[in-house]
Amino acid sequence: MPEHVSTLQLIGVTVLTVAGVVWALAVTRLMRRARVEAAALPALPHQPDVGPVHEYVELTPAEQDAFAGLVRRLDGR
């Protein structure tokens, strides 16, 4: 035991540490319980897993050349 620390200070630190651990465990348990209850009662309806349809636009040869030139110019950085 350190010489410059009183017995009451050591007891106080121990009590505060134990209280902190108990508090952390209680909060963790409450959060888990709330998460389980939230999963059982969803706030939003089920969302479909399908995304939007992909669009495809055919480029003209002039647009393809312009895009290739842009890529070459940006690649030179």
Rank of each mutant, 00 (worst) to 15 (best):
Ala26Tyr: 09
Pro61Phe: 04
Asp49Ala: 12
Arg77Pro: 00
Val36Ile: 08
Pro52Asn: 09
Pro52Asp: 15
Val22Thr: 09
Leu25Glu: 09
Val5Phe: 01
Ala40Ile: 01
Arg77Gly: 08
Val53Thr: 10
Leu41Pro: 00
Val13Thr: 12
Val18Lys: 00
Ala66Gly: 04
Ile11Glu: 13
Leu74Phe: 01
Leu30Glu: 14
Gly12Ser: 09
Leu59Gly: 00
Asp75His: 07
Phe67Ser: 05
Gln9Leu: 05
Gly76Ser: 15
Glu3Met: 09
Leu74His: 03
Ala24Lys: 04
Arg32Leu: 15
Ala66Ile: 06
Val50His: 02
Ser6Gln: 03
Val57Leu: 08
Thr14Tyr: 02
Gly20His: 02
Ala19Leu: 06
Met31Ser: 12
Ala66Lys: 12
Ala68Trp: 04
Pro52Ile: 12
Thr28Trp: 07
His54Gln: 13
Thr60Gln: 12
Gly12Val: 00
Val15Thr: 04
Leu25His: 03
Phe67Thr: 06
Val27Ala: 01
Asp49His: 02
Val50Asp: 11
Asp49Met: 07
Leu59Ala: 06
Pro2Lys: 09
Val21Thr: 12
Tyr56Ile: 15
Thr60Cys: 10
Glu58Tyr: 02
Asp65Ala: 15
Thr28Arg: 12
Gly12Lys: 10
Trp23His: 11
Gly76Tyr: 05
Arg33Gln: 08
Thr17Glu: 08
Tyr56Arg: 14
His54Ala: 14
Val71Asn: 00
Tyr56Ala: 15
Gly76His: 08
Val27Thr: 05
Ala24Phe: 06
Val36Asn: 01
Gly12Cys: 05
Ala62Val: 07
Ala62Ser: 12
Ala62Asp: 15
Val50Ser: 05
Ala38Ile: 07
Arg29Glu: 15
Arg77Asp: 09
Leu10Phe: 01
Pro61Trp: 05
Ala19Cys: 10
Gly12Phe: 01
Arg29Thr: 15
Thr17Ala: 13
Val53Tyr: 00
Pro2Gly: 02
Ala68Ser: 12
Gly69Phe: 02
Gly76Arg: 11
Met31Phe: 05
Arg29Met: 14
Gly51Gln: 07
Ile11Gly: 00
Pro2Ser: 10
Thr17Leu: 14
Leu44Met: 14
Pro42Met: 04
Val36Ala: 07
Val53Leu: 09
Val22Ile: 13
Thr17Met: 10
Leu59Asp: 03
Pro61Arg: 04
Pro45His: 06
Val15Cys: 03
Leu8Cys: 06
Val21His: 01
Asp65Phe: 08
Val36Met: 02
Ile11Trp: 00
Trp23Leu: 15
Ala38Glu: 14
Pro2Trp: 03
Glu58Ser: 06
Arg35Tyr: 05
Gln64Arg: 10
Met1Pro: 06
Ala38Tyr: 02
Pro45Tyr: 06
Leu70Gln: 14
Leu25Met: 13
Asp65Asn: 11
Glu55Trp: 05
Glu37Cys: 02
Pro2His: 07
Val18Gln: 01
Gly76Trp: 03
Gly20Thr: 10
Gly20Ile: 02
Ile11Val: 13
Leu44Cys: 07
Pro42Gly: 03
Val27Glu: 01
Val15Arg: 08
